[in-house]
Amino acid sequence: MTTLHAYLFVAVVLFGIGLCGLMLRRSLIAMLISLELMLGAASLNVVALTSLSGASSSVGQVVALILIGVAAAEAAIALSLFVAIQRRAHSIDVEDLSELKG
């Protein structure tokens, strides 16, 4: 197992934990946390692959920085949406938010 594979293994484990949390948890905030874990695993993959294999490593850093920026914008929007949903529905449990269920 090379050093690159160690990083990729950590990324796979983080992605799996995030996926499990996304399916398991019912609070919207906990689901957002799981989503951010999966995004972190993806950016770790990008940085590790560009640093330890082939391409120029500053490209990977730029991609990871843009990923962090997009994730921050997404978190800001999502959290304000959660507050708005809580005001309307008095719950942020996804199983209570079933108005559109047929």
Binding site: I29, L32, E36
Partner: peptide, 19 residues
Amino acid sequence: LVYVGAVAIAMVYAVMLSH
């Protein structure tokens, strides 16, 4: 800076406002 300093704090605020 972004995740520990900003996003996690924003999440705590969202929890206090909603949960």
